[in-house]
């Protein structure tokens, strides 16, 4: 069994590590510091941690003001409140003026579980991707989260990093070389290309193992930077395949499936591209695993799609 760790835990640790090497880093939270793990940073740097209270909009504007004065503010809350409630602030006060605000939002996706639809953010990548100047990163595991958090301080301008509540599989060792803007081809295959983001990368790898035994050879690509998108890697891996699958713990509208389909069709690649995603519905209460199962966001769910694409029509 692979080691498990929540990406939010990796965030809290990496943020603290970053705080030690970069004194411009300041942190804002909105009454969820224990859940987002900015509490870890706060413990070491209490003077550099600001609680905005339950006021995500104002948190975002205060961070923009701090950034305008040369700081590198990180803002964190649940993804639903940190991209939805404050969308206009992100748009007009952060992205349009290209201010150096790093938005690391936790509790994204269905794996929030029991809190239900109001807390299960499935549209954050769509919203953030639509904002000019925003870099959008969805780390696949705790290792990549750490690397992304450390790297984003050197990316000029706004960055969105999506992290989660649930403990999920660690797929990368410390030697993994995360490069913002580059997709990572984890395995090459000849039949089907699977593009995945976030916690779905581990499931895509499991699916590829299952399919290999059935004689279906799959590529698995971790598309952790959604914007700027690594179009070359996507086209290179999709070229000549029987089909393409995208896997995301996100709505099918405006997330990974949308950007991959855009890439394939604008390049004239006539390959079928099918989604493993939440199909334009809200979430609900349940355990994380029950919800992933219900929406087919599992290795088996991916394998089912692969078999459909593989069999001759």
């Amino acid at each position: 069994m692979a080691e498990m760790k929540a990406t939010r835990d990796a965030y809290g640790e990496a943020l603290t590590e970053l705080g030690r090497i970069n004194d411009k880093v300041v942190v804002f939270d909105a009454d969820l510091s224990g859940s987002t793990k900015t509490s870890v940073f706060k413990k070491e740097f209490p003077q550099r941690h600001f609680n905005a209270g339950i006021a995500e909009n104002n948190m975002t504007n205060m961070a923009a003001g701090m950034a305008a004065c040369g700081k590198i503010p990180f803002i964190s809350t649940f993804a639903v409140f940190g991209t939805g409630r404050n969308y206009d602030a992100l748009r007009s006060s952060v992205c349009y003026p290209k201010l150096n605000v790093k938005c690391v939002m936790s509790h994204a996706g269905l794996t929030v579980g029991e809190d239900g639809a109001t807390h299960e953010m499935l549209e954050d990548v769509a919203l953030m991707n639509a904002l000019p100047n925003m870099t959008v990163i969805v780390p696949a595991d705790a290792t990549e989260t750490r690397k992304a958090v450390l790297a984003c301080a050197d990316i000029p301008g706004p960055v969105y990093i999506r992290v989660g509540r649930a403990k999920t599989e660690i797929i990368y060792g410390d030697d993994y070389d995360f490069v913002p803007g580059k997709a990572h081809v984890i395995r090459h295959g000849s039949d089907i290309a699977i593009f995945a983001m976030g916690i779905m990368v581990a499931k895509a790898l499991q699916a590829a193992d299952i399919l290999k035994q059935e004689g279906i050879d799959c590529s698995v690509v971790n598309v952790s930077t959604i914007k700027p998108l690594d179009r070359e890697a996507i086209l290179a891996e999709a070229e000549g395949k029987k089909g393409v699958i995208t896997c995301e713990e996100h709505s099918v509208m405006g997330g990974l499936n949308s950007v991959v389909c855009q890439t394939l069709s604008s390049a004239g690649l006539g390959v079928r591209c099918v989604p493993v995603a939440v199909m334009d519905v809200f979430g609900e209460s349940g355990t994380a695993d029950e919800l992933l199962e219900k929406h087919g966001l599992t290795a088996d769910g991916i394998a089912v799609k692969a078999r459909e694409l593989y069999k001759p029509h």
């Binding site: 239900g116 639809a117 209460s285 349940g286 355990t287 219900k294």
Partner: peptide, 13 residues
């Protein structure tokens, strides 16, 4: 309450 399929969602619906 809060179980899959329940009317009683984590937050009121």
């Amino acid at each position: 309450f809060r179980k899959l399929g329940s009317h009683l969602q984590g937050h009121p619906d």
